[in-house]
Computed example of a mutant assay.
Amino acid sequence: MKESTDRLKKLLADDAEADLVHAELEPDGAYQLRPTTVAALSDEVSRTLARGFTGRSPRDFPLLVVAWGKCRVGSTALTNLFGVAGIPAYYQPVKTIARHVMVGGSGAPWALPDGQEVLFAKEMAGPYVHYETLFDPIGCLLDAGWPKERLHLLVLDREPVASLNSWLVKWQGKIGRRRVRDNFELSTLNYPRIRARARAAGVPVTHFAYEASRQPADAVRRLFERLGVADRYEDTVVTGWGSRGDLNSEAATVIYPDEPEPYHVPGLHSSGDGYSYRRTSEVALTAEDEELARADHIDGIYRTSVLACARDLGIDDLTRLSAPR
């Protein structure tokens, strides 16, 4: 799949949107069983989502905060945090439909709860196949009928060396080191495209760098204010989770979907008594891996996220907090 990866990287670099979304994505025989394209599979996802939104007028949709970024940026803990705050918090409802389709199923419409003013959903880029690195959850939702004025894109990011190491720890045994590296790179290169597509559609964008969680209470309070949900913030949102901090258990406040095999990964998530910065003690990086993570085209995208987060949330010392440790 290396030639396919190189072709997709070039299309991203050239901003060749029409060619990118219609490029054939090869099956791997495990996580994707038939050829597809970003456009074709996204259309199928949107049609499935639309069946769950039937009968809703634009004013009947809640505000949906869609958290997107490359995997392993602290997204599941952040999702749990929103759940602790009393906001229904979903684990990849859009991407899960695509995963069912890729292994021969159809996926189920997203059943929205009644009487909620705000929802949260994480929709992360990667790690298994090319579609996951390139799909646009905001685009899928808009095409399914979600009104743009009821969407907010929350771009998540994390220092690339730590993030790539976490990818390798979790997934090199499943898809191999080369595919992990390739899909990590594609997911990172997709940041400018996803931001631009959201803004072109009239959807507001906020950035949150995981390193801001080194000062969790201040960062989360500022984030809630930025998203317009300041009334949901209390100190207990970031501390005292107790059993709710076991992100692999039913006690967590994350609403997990029914994912198809082979996407089940036991023990994928960490546990803790609150929301704070965490880093795995296991090291899977080689010198070549670290060189990729520190390359200008990867680190530059992360630095853009850091500067945007500092601006969006008014965190003056975020550059210091985001320095590798």
Rank of each mutant, 00 (worst) to 15 (best):
F61E: 08
D15S: 15
E159Y: 03
W110C: 03
L164F: 11
T286E: 02
G139H: 04
K9I: 15
G242Y: 07
A308P: 00
A162H: 08
K2I: 13
I87L: 10
R178P: 00
E132H: 04
F53I: 07
S305P: 01
P204K: 03
V129S: 02
T304M: 12
L112H: 06
L247Y: 01
R232W: 03
K174W: 10
A125M: 12
D246G: 10
D28T: 11
R158A: 10
L141D: 02
G86I: 07
L227N: 06
G107I: 10
D312K: 06
P35F: 04
G104F: 08
L20H: 13
A212T: 02
E282V: 15
I175E: 05
T319F: 14
I298T: 09
V38D: 09
H269C: 07
T48Q: 09
P266E: 05
D60F: 08
H269I: 01
R232C: 07
A30R: 12
Y90F: 15
G126K: 09
A50I: 11
P109C: 05
N80H: 14
D218R: 09
T319L: 15
V65P: 09
R279H: 07
D316M: 07
V254H: 10
H22Q: 09
Q116S: 10
A16M: 08
L227P: 07
A111W: 05
A252W: 07
P216M: 00
S281L: 12
G126R: 08
V101F: 05
D246M: 00
D218G: 04
V65Q: 04
R51T: 13
V169L: 05
R226D: 05
K2D: 11
D19Q: 15
G228V: 04
H130C: 04
R325W: 09
L247E: 01
F61P: 13
D15Y: 08
P127V: 14
T48P: 04
A125E: 12
G145L: 06
R195D: 15
I97K: 09
F224V: 07
N190L: 05
P127R: 10
D6P: 14
W68C: 12
L189I: 00
V101Q: 14
A13H: 14
G314W: 01
N190F: 11
D157P: 01
A85W: 00
D19R: 13
A219V: 02
E3P: 15
L151W: 01
R214T: 09
P160V: 02
A284D: 00
Y128I: 05
R99Q: 15
R244S: 00
Y131K: 01
L25F: 05
V38M: 04
V101M: 14
F53K: 14
T37I: 06
R72K: 09
W167N: 10
A252L: 11
K2Y: 12
D312E: 08
E225W: 05
P324D: 06
E159L: 06
E261Q: 15
A287W: 00
S4C: 11
L189V: 03
L63W: 02
V161M: 03
R197I: 03
K70V: 14
I194N: 00
R179V: 06
P257Y: 13
V65I: 15
D317S: 14
A13P: 15
G202E: 10
R279M: 06
S276C: 12
H264K: 13
L164K: 04
L154V: 11
G242H: 03
D316C: 02
L156I: 12
R214Q: 05
L112A: 00
